[in-house]
């Protein structure tokens, strides 16, 4: 019962702030509502017994990515901030399509019979994640490290440009 109350409260906050993010006319308010939505997703991870992922979610999404987006908004803002985030002319067809998708998704999920497993979740996840990441998925781990380096260099080159050497 408490689980149900917690779940519906968190789902309401997460989905409500995400929806308000879309319909807000001020892009700065959109960024702050996106932050609330990310923190709501971190709470969903705690409901799913994923404590380490909840911490990573708050650090990376609510910390780093929101700050990135706010930087981007401040670099490109001009004019009246209350009119910075309008809808395009596709808004109404997109809304109809999205409502249809949400209904189809909900019906499909409810109708499907899922193969449940009855193993209790582990108490702490950090050690198990570290074991998996540095043994079975070590190649993916290293490739992700190289990708982050490439993304960093690429972002600097795209913004600053390359200096001619001669």
């Amino acid at each position: 019962m408490t689980m149900a109350v917690m779940f519906y409260l968190i789902a309401f906050v997460t989905l409500g702030s995400a929806f308000m993010m879309v319909i807000s006319k001020n892009i700065f308010h959109s960024a702050l509502l996106m932050l609330i939505s990310f923190i709501g997703v971190a709470a969903v991870y705690i409901l799913l017994h994923a404590d380490f992922l909840a911490a990573v979610q708050v650090l990376v999404y609510a910390g780093a990515i929101t700050i990135f987006i706010v930087f981007g908004i401040m670099f490109t803002m001009k004019g009246d901030p209350r009119k910075t985030n309008p809808f395009s002319k596709n808004a109404i067809p997109a809304a109809v399509l999205i409502l249809l998708f949400i209904v189809i998704n909900a019906v499909t999920v409810i109708k499907t019979v899922w193969p449940f497993s009855n193993i209790a979740p582990p108490e702490t996840t950090v050690k198990a994640i570290a074991d998996l990441m540095l043994t079975k998925y070590v190649v993916g781990f290293e490739v992700t490290a190289v990708l982050l380096l490439a993304a960093m260099v690429g972002a600097i080159v795209i913004v600053k440009g390359v200096k001619k050497s001669s």
Binding site: L15, F19, V22, P86, S88, N90, A91, A94, I98, N105
Partner: peptide, 14 residues
């Protein structure tokens, strides 16, 4: 799924 489609709505309609 609902959160995903709200994000998709932002991509299509903003």
């Amino acid at each position: 799924g609902t959160l995903f489609f709200i994000g998709l709505f932002a991509v299509l309609a903003k």
